[in-house]
Amino acid sequence: MAENSKYYVPASSPWPIMGAIGLGLIAFGAGHTVLDVTKNTDGYGSNILTAGILVILVMLFGWFRDQINESMSGKFNQQLGRSYRQGMSWFIFSEVMFFAAFFGALFYARNVAVPWLAGASNNAMTHSVLWPEFVAQWPLVETPGGTTTEAMGWYGLPAINTVLLLLSSVTCHMAHIALENNRRGRLKLFLGATILLGGGFLFLQGSEYIHAYQELGLTLQSGVYGNTFFLLTGFHGMHVTLGTLMLIIMFLRIMKGHFTPQSHFAFQATSWYWHFVDVVWVCLFVFVYVL
C-alpha cells in the first residue's frame, strides 16, 4: 500500500446498513426457524434466514471489493492502518464478549440452576414442588416433559475436529511467516492447507449434527443441554464459516499478487480472527464436550 501525506476519508458506503439489514433478517429468521423446528411446522423462518445470509454475502463481497480497490490504488496510509488495527482489535474483543455471554449461560445452568433444582442452597421446597424426582447431574439427558437424549462424547468427531483446527492454526501461522519472508510458494501451500482444514472441520461438524439428531436424539428440544450444545457449537460453526470465507478471499488476492512483506494487514487481520476461532473451539471442547 502506498503512503499518503494526508488522511484518507473513505466515501459514504451502503454496506454497513446492508449488513445491519442482513443481520436483522438472520436473527429474525433463525428465531422463527427454531420455533418451526420445535413445533414441527413448515413456517417462513428458514426462507428469511436464507435471505439474510444472501444479503450478508452480497455485503461482504461488495465491501471487500471496495476495500481492495482502495488499498491497491494507494489511498491508505499509516494513520489509517492504525485505525484498521484498532477496529479489528475491538471487533475481536466484542466477539470475546459474545462467547463469554454464552459460556456464562452454560456455567450458570450447570453450577447454579441444576443444583437449585435438586434442592441445594436451601431450595428444598423448589426441588419438591417443581421436580421431586430430579437428580443434579450434567449433562441433563431428560427433560421435565420426559424427552430423553444421549450426551455427545468428546471422542470421535469432536476430537478429530479439535486436531483439525489446531493444525489449521499452525498452518495459518506458517503462511503468515512465509508472507513476511516473501516466500510466495510456501504462502500459497500453507494458506491452502488452512482453508482445506477449515472446510474439513465444517464438514465433520455437519456430520456430527446429523449423528446427534438421528442416533443420539440430541436436538433443540432436548432441554437446556441440547439448547446450550447447539447454541455454542452452532455459533462457533458460523464463525468458522466466516473465517474460511475470509481465508479464501486472502488466497485469491495472493494468487493475483497482492500483499507484500511490509504491507499485508488484511491477511494479518484474517490470521488474528482465525486464531481467535481456534481458541474458542478449544474452550468449547473442554467445557461442552469433556467436562
Rank of each mutant, 00 (worst) to 15 (best):
K6D: 09
Y8S: 05
V9P: 01
V9C: 02
S12F: 11
P14N: 10
P16F: 09
I21M: 13
L23V: 08
A27W: 06
G31F: 13
V34Y: 13
L35R: 14
N40K: 14
N40F: 10
G43C: 07
G43T: 03
G45N: 11
S46E: 13
T50K: 13
A51G: 12
I53V: 15
I53N: 10
L54A: 15
L54N: 10
V55G: 09
I56S: 12
M59L: 06
F61Q: 02
W63D: 06
W63C: 01
R65A: 09
E70P: 00
E70D: 13
M72I: 07
M72Y: 03
K75Q: 09
F76D: 00
Q78L: 10
G81W: 03
R82K: 12
R85C: 08
Q86I: 15
S89C: 10
F93S: 10
F93A: 15
E95Q: 13
M97K: 00
A100L: 14
F102Q: 03
F103N: 04
L106H: 05
R110V: 07
W116H: 10
A118K: 01
G119L: 07
A120R: 03
A124N: 09
A124Y: 04
L130H: 06
A136Q: 02
Q137R: 11
Q137A: 11
P139C: 03
L140P: 00
E142L: 04
T147W: 00
T147P: 00
T148L: 01
Y155P: 00
G156N: 12
A159N: 04
N161L: 10
L166M: 13
L167C: 14
S168I: 05
S168T: 06
H176A: 08
A178P: 06
N181W: 02
R183H: 12
G185D: 14
K188M: 12
F190V: 00
A193W: 06
T194E: 06
F201E: 01
G206A: 08
G206C: 06
G206T: 09
S207Q: 09
I210G: 03
I210D: 08
H211I: 07
G217A: 05
T219F: 07
S222D: 05
S222F: 05
G223W: 02
G223Y: 01
N227V: 11
F229W: 05
F229R: 01
L231G: 00
L232C: 06
L232K: 03
T233L: 11
G234C: 09
G234Y: 10
H239M: 08
L242N: 03
T244Y: 08
L245F: 11
L247I: 02
L247A: 15
I248A: 12
I249H: 05
M250V: 14
L252D: 09
L252A: 15
R253S: 07
R253N: 12
G257E: 09
S263W: 04
H264Q: 12
A266H: 04
A266P: 01
F267G: 00
Q268N: 07
A269D: 11
T270S: 15
W274E: 03
F276V: 07
V279E: 07
W281A: 03
C283D: 12
V286K: 03
V290S: 08
V290I: 11
L291E: 04
